[in-house]
Design a protein around this nucleic acid. Sequence first.
DNA 1: CACCGGATTGGCT
DNA 2: GCCAATCCGGTGT
Length: 210
Amino acid sequence: MKKILPESFYHRHDILQVSKDLLGKKLVSSIGGRQTSGMIVETEAYRAPDDKASHAYGDKLTERTKTMFAPAGTVYVYICYGIHHLFNVVTADEGMAHVILVRAVEPLSGLEHMSVRRKMEAHKKEMCNGPGKFTRAMGITKALNNNSLLHKKEGLWIEDHIEILAKDIIEGPRVGMATAEECSNWPWRFRIKNNQWTSKPDTVWYEKYW
DNA sequence: CACCGGATTGGCT
DNA sequence: GCCAATCCGGTGT
């Protein structure tokens, strides 16, 4: 039986391991009476206080970042470029701003709802292959910010799905790190090897990393 | 209270 | 490949 991920899954200090362990898990949304789900295929870790790419760099506490310090298993959603809602999972101890951005999912169910929300045909590769794309497809908005992932109810949760072996995980530098200086090279992005639903094909990842 | 810019996307050249 | 869309949080007056 598939089961919802427990608090202990998120409540770990090795955020890079949690980022890798999220690959292959099933993200489910039940919003507005419509249920959709997708397998997580690409993640990025953001770890304050040392990470200049994190909104909470230096443990900066603001109205936006306060959710990042919430207990493990909390949803952090923020709006990017005024248009896109980006979904993150809060990990580690309360008070530690360690979060994981989900960058892409492989559609599993509710494709008809995704199709309507994204205004495109179901089964297209572009449906969920970006951090602003799958949130749109799954109805994830800032309204879910600070919600918990630990209960299967209206909203969002994550379930076991398939296991991804270490040899099938590719790591590379994160996206959009122009102002993050040395942090821009940290290989804190993870994806499932040969998966067709990530935000970039494997070849591009290798070129950018090396 | 005004201004600046972004963990992106999609449409047009 | 280039660039506008679109708006809120963060910062400084």
